[in-house]
């Protein structure tokens, strides 16, 4: 597979061209075949070492990167903040330098501080993938969202995408807005006023004060998780009120376009951002997103590690 991929790191969506993104999506789409084999393993990355450094909790992203590496026969080193020397006061740079001394070819980093992966990338020789940093970005989530929408809708250009919830503090929303717009989709966002970005900071998304305005005619509706752990003082009065005015349910989704799909990056707070009745909504693709997460991360490991060889 001789494809051009001119990047050593994946830190944010910005530096990727539309063409780079198609390369990732098509590579991921093709790799899904491997996952369906009776023995889903290929030797492509044998001898490569991927270090997963997770400085904050994760289920999907961490398992997904681990699975992606193992299908491609790479070795995986796992690090979690809990139980590590961080608890003894070791700083980020020392932690990373020590892991680097054990020879990984690629770092996968999740960190509560915006820009932490950029900081690490400046100080290590290996490549770095941002697996979510603070309020900043979660680029691999946006890429797996693009893959899911492309597979379900057959296109990305011209789609109306509605993202609902905590837009201001969501790294997923940030990366999705940049990625969907780059691929020619229109992005609308809505949520309570305290969780919406000021217009000038919406990165080109249209800010809708009313949920219905964002959802109406949308081809893709994405709910974001209410991030209970990220705020100091509560930014809305209570969950009941949130669910009533900003949560998605069948009534609101009936305004969306025919055959609209419903997405969520997980983990879901059922009964807050999504009404429980949506569990069997026909356009619900939440588990497809998870499956595509493995494929997209396989594609990225492949592209970044192969690019670093040449």
């Amino acid at each position: 597979m001789a494809v051009e991929f001119p990047h050593r790191h994946l830190l944010e969506i910005g530096p990727l061209s539309e063409e780079d993104i198609w390369t990732i999506l098509k590579t991921a789409h093709n790799l899904k075949e491997v996952l369906k084999r009776p023995i889903p393993k290929v030797p492509t990355l044998r001898g490569k070492v991927v270090a997963n450094l997770f400085f904050e909790p994760s289920t999907r992203t961490k398992l997904s990167f681990e699975r992606a590496a193992k299908v491609l026969s790479a070795e995986v080193m796992n690090f979690s903040a809990r139980g590590s020397s961080l608890e003894k006061g070791e700083n980020l740079l020392d932690t990373v330098k020590n892991v680097e001394a054990m020879g990984p070819d690629l770092f996968v980093i999740r960190h509560p501080a915006s820009g932490a992966p950029h900081f690490v990338a400046r100080h290590v020789r290996a490549g770095v993938i941002n697996a979510g940093d603070g309020f900043h970005e979660h680029p691999t989530q946006a890429l797996l969202d693009l893959l899911t929408v492309w597979e379900k809708k057959g296109t990305l250009k011209g789609l109306k995408v509605a993202i609902i919830g905590d837009i201001r503090h969501s790294r997923v929303a940030h990366s999705d807005i940049l990625a969907f717009r780059k691929m020619g989709a229109e992005v609308y966002v809505s949520g309570p006023g305290t969780l919406l970005p000021p217009e000038r900071e919406a990165l080109g998304a249209k800010v809708c004060l009313r949920l219905e305005e964002a959802v109406e005619g949308a081809d893709v509706v994405m709910a974001l998780r209410v991030q209970k752990e990220r705020h100091g003082r509560p930014l809305f009065p209570n969950f009941h009120e949130y669910a009533r005015y900003f949560g998605l349910n069948r009534r609101v989704l009936s305004l969306a376009a025919e055959g609209a799909i419903l997405m969520h990056p997980g983990p879901i707070n059922w009964g807050i951002e999504l009404a429980p009745e949506l569990e069997d909504f026909p356009g619900q693709v939440i588990l497809d997103q998870v499956e595509n997460g493995v494929a997209v991360r396989m594609a990225l490991l492949l592209l970044l590690l192969k690019a670093s060889e040449t």
Binding site: H136, E201, A202
Partner: peptide, 15 residues
């Protein structure tokens, strides 16, 4: 909790 000026750069950097 602020880190830098509120505006476009803060929005882009997620700060």
């Amino acid at each position: 909790g602020g880190q830098i000026n509120e505006g476009m750069v803060a929005a882009r950097l997620g700060l």
